[in-house]
């Protein structure tokens, strides 16, 4: 696992370093805007290298069996984020909670609908009435 992690960070660090080409490192007497980011990237490359060349002493092998769950939750959340300013807080978040309960957790549709609308309206009321900071309204005005 150490080797995989090391290689991931070496690749990432190298790619970003190449992208940083136009950032001036400057000199020690006049450090430029690229000094800290480039030093940080060099650190990333160095420690990535140490990790990938090490003895692989980290914890037990990774299990990825929760990946489908993570993907489903991530995708649904991403979709809700994309619709957030368009549909507004109440609709997009109710839809997100409902979708998570039905599509990911396989809960009964009626109960999921009731729960999703109920909690989102409660959160909306909390922000609007108690905190005087109403969440984003959508095309329907709420």
């Amino acid at each position: 696992m150490d080797r995989v992690a090391g290689i991931v960070f070496i690749s990432f660090g190298a790619a970003v370093y190449v992208l940083s080409g136009d950032l001036p490192f400057g000199t020690f007497s006049a450090p430029g805007a690229g000094m800290l980011p480039k030093l940080a990237l060099l650190g990333m490359l160095l420690f990535g290298l140490v990790l990938s060349l090490g003895r692989g002493t980290s914890r037990a092998a990774t299990r990825w069996d929760d990946l489908p769950h993570a993907l489903r939750v991530g995708l649904l959340t991403g979709f809700a984020v994309a619709c957030y300013t368009w549909l507004g807080f109440v609709i997009s978040m109710s839809a997100l909670v409902f979708a998570l309960l039905v599509a990911v957790e396989r809960r009964a549709i009626g109960r999921a609908a009731l729960f999703s609308v109920g909690v989102v309206l409660a959160v909306d009321a909390l922000f609007t009435l108690l905190l005087a900071s109403p969440p984003e309204p959508g095309i329907l005005g709420f």
Partner: peptide
């Protein structure tokens, strides 16, 4: 490594 990523 994490600290370097955070600094970047």
């Amino acid at each position: 490594l994490m600290a370097a990523l955070g600094l970047w």
